[in-house]
């Protein structure tokens, strides 16, 4: 079995399968190994003789018929897939125009329209309310816009208080908005400096909560 590699090489001789260094190595081995040399001599029989009779070309029984058959099959396939597509589209249309489905679609459209109108009304109303409120308070309150960083911290803190005071998240939001309008810059000084952060936020919250409840 040791010589298997060399026997393999011998069978690859004569074409471009062996690299130069492999050929050189084989030549060296053949010089010293009588067994492999015997195989090599044996195989100097004409390789063309071995495969020569296999390399004839077969005849296609009817080349034109073969071409025609391939093209016919392709046409059939394309027509079929086109028909399938048409059928699918037709079925889709049938489904859409089925009386029951048509009625359903009409009802759904009306419901969606109603929901849209109600929502629009609500939005308009709340915007107006906000405008009036802003107008009222702009004269009496010192307006401060909270920095985002503080607003975030406040929100976290306020959310923790949510259960305690059973405020809805909408109300929490309103508290924050009101805070922006009525808080004094001094209220945030502690927050900015980082001293007693929790306390400051809490006290602000408590104060604002009271303010909020008073009216």
């Amino acid at each position: 079995m040791k010589h298997n590699k060399w026997i393999n090489y011998i069978h690859l001789l004569g074409s471009d399968e062996l690299e130069l260094r492999e050929q050189q190595a084989l030549n060296e081995h053949l010089k010293v190994c009588s067994g492999c040399r015997a195989v090599y001599e044996q195989l100097r029989l004409d390789w063309a003789g071995v495969i020569g009779e296999m390399t004839m070309s077969p005849h296609i029984p009817n080349p034109e018929a073969l071409t025609a058959s391939i093209l016919t099959r392709i046409e059939n396939m394309d027509t079929q897939s086109f028909k399938h597509q048409q059928l699918r589209v037709a079925k889709g249309f049938q489904l859409v125009f089925h009386p029951d489905i048509r009625l359903g679609l009409q009802i759904a459209t009306l419901v969606l329209l109603a929901v849209f109108l109600v929502e629009q009304y609500e939005v308009t109303k709340s915007v107006k309310r906000l405008e009036i409120q802003m107008h009222k308070q702009s004269n009496q309150a010192h307006v401060v816009i909270l920095p985002d960083r503080i607003k975030k911290r406040l929100l976290v803190n306020l959310k923790q208080q949510l259960d305690k005071h059973s405020l809805s998240s909408k109300r929490i939001e309103r508290v924050i908005n009101r805070l922006e309008i009525t808080a004094q810059p001094a209220d945030f000084w502690h927050l900015e400096s980082g001293a007693n952060e929790g306390d400051s936020e809490l006290s602000i919250f408590e104060r604002m909560k009271d303010n909020w409840r008073r009216p």
Binding site: E53, M56, P58, P61, N62, A65, S69
Partner: peptide, 23 residues
């Protein structure tokens, strides 16, 4: 494919291919 089977190949083609297949 049945289309081709109806298309009878010539005796010459049959024997040529059979001979080659055998080799």
């Amino acid at each position: 494919n049945q289309d081709l089977i109806s298309n009878e190949p010539s005796i010459e083609t049959i024997s040529h291919n059979q001979d080659l297949a055998r080799r």
